[in-house]
Write a protein that binds this DNA or RNA. Sequence first.
DNA 1: ACACAATATGCAAACGTTTGCATGAATTTA
DNA 2: TAAATTCATGCAAACGTTTGCATATTGTGT
Lengths: 341, 341
Amino acid sequence: MKRRTTLKDLAKELNLAASTISRALDDHPGISPETKEKVLNKAEELGFTRNSIASSFRKNKTLTIGVIVPRIDIHFHSLVISGIEEFAYKAGYNVTIFQSRDSIKRETKITKILQNKMSEGVIICLGTETDSYEHFEKLNRLKIPLVFYDRVPSDYEANKIIINDYESAFKATEHLIEIGCKRIGHIGGSQSTGIFKDRYEGFKAALTKHGFPMDKKLVHFTRELSYEEGALVAKKLLNLENRPDGIFCSNDYTAVSAIQVFQKNNIKIPNEISIVGFSNYPISKIIEPHLTTVNDRAFEMGMAAARLLIRQIEEEEDIIQSEIVTIKTELIVRESTMRSS
Amino acid sequence: MKRRTTLKDLAKELNLAASTISRALDDHPGISPETKEKVLNKAEELGFTRNSIASSFRKNKTLTIGVIVPRIDIHFHSLVISGIEEFAYKAGYNVTIFQSRDSIKRETKITKILQNKMSEGVIICLGTETDSYEHFEKLNRLKIPLVFYDRVPSDYEANKIIINDYESAFKATEHLIEIGCKRIGHIGGSQSTGIFKDRYEGFKAALTKHGFPMDKKLVHFTRELSYEEGALVAKKLLNLENRPDGIFCSNDYTAVSAIQVFQKNNIKIPNEISIVGFSNYPISKIIEPHLTTVNDRAFEMGMAAARLLIRQIEEEEDIIQSEIVTIKTELIVRESTMRSS
DNA sequence: ACACAATATGCAAACGTTTGCATGAATTTA
DNA sequence: TAAATTCATGCAAACGTTTGCATATTGTGT
């Protein structure tokens, strides 16, 4: 069992001090070009690579950030992680991921793992069960910067990357009004989750602004905005004596589900009922008719989260107490709201 | 600027040796229950957590595995990663992810990063550009175990987690034959990628076994099996004087695309043309008619990859030179091949 | 009461790298 | 040519934890 070659081995081989080797590899100005050359060659020859754990230990810097998401296989999160990795990679940081699987117990345990100085900062999207933030307080006290995204703690000051759900929903609803919808319904998510509440509020505000009455019969909240729940709600809306002619859905799955239910009942989309979704999932441009939806720019959220976090990690004096970045959304208009007049 | 509390701080507070503290926290049998109690309490009081970098350094164990995927936001990979994380988490390992973005240059640079003793093992899905494996050889020489999944090096001995693409395609095609298809076409992927070649071979073998002639006009290879390419190929098949009555597609995107093209041209699915996809993407159970497809069990692949890797990391004597695990696939029959007779 | 075993704790080195300071050689300046 | 400056390298401590071995204390059997 041979030991890995170390700085000292290299030093011995070259009759130099370990410190010289270290500096040579760092391209330190105080080392002569010839020595650097020699060191580099020998390192190549012996297949030497720095032990980055020893380095991290000595420098007290790991160049690693932690990411906690409910689930990696949800497309939105995989896009965010992709953005985080992209920015982090270019900034020389590694990304360690954890899934809370929406369990506050597991989320708490993960924060414990992350306390151990392993990550220099943490990016989090809260799980559905999470209603207190003590476990993050601990990280705060250890001066480990945190950035929340998407599902952020509402009543807790922190770094956050968000979109304006209220405004996005408002615009989406207004779009339905502009194309001539008169009775507009809503398929919403759990109102205990901030973002879904905001979307509902934005929906309501748009109706109010344009003098539309609020018909409670047209509004349904689901537990988790699943494809199946979407179908159930759509059927209810369909069977109303006075059914809607436009629906704003809080995500794309329920929107797609609704489209299919209506189509099966020979209701023409968009002319009889127009549909708007939320998130710009891949399926939104596959379903026929293509779905009008809000692009929430998940990749960019990830980039922004990593940028903010790394800035805070590297900041010399921490003057900034917290920062909230709002990413622009965009309504992508597709066939599901393109009425032929 | 206060220093983090260390083992030594704790030791001083309690008038114990650092070694005692360390062992107490490890629940070492040689330490009395009372001392353990005291240590635990004090640790809690001072908010002490071990510096895991120092620990990793000393023990020469990082409990971290690296994962290289082409892109995280591809659903298949996000599922695999989810499986990897799930297994690793339960085994006490952390997962650090990297995207090669199908660039061999970036892939190589990532392997350099992973050489530094940071990860104890690496799980990889090769990028499309990758045609040589020297950059992995380096990791091999450093005794860092590797596990490849999905896109694995064909002419290179290594640990691999795969599915039997040949057999899966064979069965999928046979299914089309069994339901009565007489002219069966294929929408395939790049034949320079092993898995897509295998699927094509399996397709051919099924035809041969059942005495069907190979009609080259019914077989089309795409560059990246995209939704858009699927539509192009489907149109070509549609316009043949003698069009197919069944199609085996090497992924679900092209299958869905084909379904839509045929439907727009008033061809009934499954009765006039039956379609089978590959991968069991979420969209396969949303598209109407629901798509018959091969479940490749991506999550389980991830679990298996992590299991194999961690076993190799922890193995005392390394007797096993390499290991190939084949995960079972399953044909999920849905409406797109359920013909009414 | 003695040797001996068992139990609990301490000592000190080690892991590989980095870094402030010291040292010596070579070069420039007065 | 002596002093000052620059340049290149070396020395040694430090980072926080772990671990083999040593030591001290208590308990057991004869």
